[in-house]
Structure formats: C-alpha cells, structure tokens
Design a protein around this nucleic acid. Sequence first.
DNA 1: TCACAATTGAGAAGTAATCTCAGTGTTAGA
DNA 2: TCTAACACTGAGATTACTTCTCAATTGTGA
Lengths: 166, 166
Amino acid sequence: MTSATEPESSASPPLHENLAMAPLCAVFRRYLKTNDLKYTPERADILNVIIERDDLFEVEELLLELRQHGYRVSKATVYRTIKLLQDAGIITQALFENKQAHYQLIYGKEARDYLVCMKTGQHQEFTSPELVELRNRICKERGWEPIGHRFQIYAHPPHTPTPPHD
Amino acid sequence: MTSATEPESSASPPLHENLAMAPLCAVFRRYLKTNDLKYTPERADILNVIIERDDLFEVEELLLELRQHGYRVSKATVYRTIKLLQDAGIITQALFENKQAHYQLIYGKEARDYLVCMKTGQHQEFTSPELVELRNRICKERGWEPIGHRFQIYAHPPHTPTPPHD
DNA sequence: TCACAATTGAGAAGTAATCTCAGTGTTAGA
DNA sequence: TCTAACACTGAGATTACTTCTCAATTGTGA
C-alpha cells in the first residue's frame, strides 16, 4: 500500500480540476455506506482515474494509468472496485468482439451506442433518443422496467466501393 | 464475408429443418471453396448440429451435442469451425454479461434482439423491424452501410416490487 | 494414383477474471 | 490505551475459456 515514488499518494483528499468528480464521489460513497462498505483510498484513486479518463477503458489500461498517477493498487482490487462501481450504477460494461471487457462512465449520462467498423474494428460513439424511446416502448409492451441497454451497429464505412485486395 | 453476391437469398420461404440445411451447407461450401479451404466431415457435422439446434449455443453445449450425435470432433476443431462459420456470415456471436461467448445462426434471419432480465440473467428473444429501420437510418445519415447489429435491453421483469433506492 | 497443402486431435500455452489467505487499517467499546 | 471485530488489500494461485503447436492424417487437383 505504501508507494515508492509518490508517497503523498492517496492519503490526501485534494479534489483538483474535475468538477464532475464531486457528485460521482458522493454517489459512490453513498452506495458504499448503504451497503456497509468503506470508502478506501484505493477505491477513491480508482474512481478518480476513471473520471479523469471519461472514456471507454480496459482493466489493463486503468492499471497503467493508476501507476502513472503514482497510485499503487493491485489488480485484484481494481477488479473488485469495478464490480462495486457497476453495482453503484456509476460505470457499465461495454462488450465488443474482443475478449476483454471495456467499461465506461454511465452515471448521469445518456446511454452510449456504437457504430463498429467492420473493416478496422474501431468504434464511433453516438446516442439516439429515438432508440431510448423505442427501448422503453418495447419494455412497456411487455410490462418490463427498462434499466439500460447495449446497442452496436456493425457496418462498412463510407467510401467503400468493394476494395477486396491490393 | 467479403462477397456481397447474394444478399437477396434471405427472402426465403418457410423451411423445414432439413430443407434449411441445404442452402446453409451450400453457403458454407461456397465460402470454403472461395477461400481454398476444404469441406471436411468435421465441418459438416458441426454445421449440422448448429442447424438442428437453431438457437443460441455455447461451445461447450455444442461439443456435448456433437458427442450425443456420435460425432467425434475435438474442441480445437469446433473453435476453428465456429470462426469459419462466422466469417462465412452463417453464425454470429451474441455477447452477454457472462464470460463465454454465445453463438447463433444468422444467415437469412432477422437480427435477434434480447431482453435481458436483471434479476436472473435470463434472456428473452425478440425482433423489432422498427429497430432495423432506425439502425439503417442511423447508418444512412453517416454514409455507412449497415451489416448487422446487436441490441440488448436490460430490464427488471414484471411484478417487481420497487427496487431499493440508492 | 500421387503429391501436397489443409486439417485434425490432444494437450500445452495463453489470457482475462476470480479466488484465497494472511496481514493491514479502522472503528467501537471497555 | 487496549482489544475485538470486520472489511480491505496485495500477491499469487486458480479457474474458465480460447488459441496455439505439432505430428499424423486426409481431401483435392493434376
């Protein structure tokens, strides 16, 4: 737990820059308190890095960034915290073709949908209010209560006049 | 999947199980031939079982069914063939929360969407023409050519007492 | 038929995620 | 202050799924 490079590490609570952090921290702390869990420095650091990122991330990337910030957190703790953050409704999994899961901030955001390029595998984010509406209608028809969704469109990119090979 | 020669064939009439096999075999064989690959007994057996199933399946289940049919195919070959069938556009991956991938027949079918129960993890299949329409519109606006999509709604089932707050 | 490249099975190897467990805070109460 | 209780952590073992390796086999075109 004690860090080699940046001993200041996580003991201090200086919330710099990101204003988005305050509410998310509050949500997380409330969730933890409700479930008799503790808001530890490690958990704070992890949420911190996720918020700064504000983008899709993999666990491995997250670990790397934690290291770069001088935070020392084990892989096990990262996985454990990610699970908590999911349960708290702060982040969500975004599965793509690849093996490992991606995660992203979701709390207070529109659901994010993806246009996935069949050529390169890259994905473009978008949101669609119509989709949310459709989703809600589909649920309502069946008496279900919508919580979230996952939508990915697989497509060929523009300007593709069938170039099979060079 | 690179060939776009017969997109019309999806407008097929209602087919018996057995009859459904013929066109799919043909598609697979054509794909294999095009790529200088061989139509082996193992590959035929695997496709056979997948067609009979006509449902979501995991690799482990597929292996089991192969055994039950008396087909002896190794796990490695099953994985390899699944990859080929995906490339041939015959089956597709359906990712859920769990670790392992699910697969399903896709060739000549409507995209299948899922309502996933947040309580039990079970999923209910549905199709939505409106969703397909929306998907196509989203692509068109961006100049992309839609190939497929993946849509999962996460929801609480009917008759659920109001979930605990926070 | 023959030659050759693709294919196969069995098990090793790889990878992402989870689990185990001993040791570490942190808090409450005596 | 001391102590007990209990959640938390790191490191490494473990599990579950998937891919890879390689020697032996098989299908296909000439």
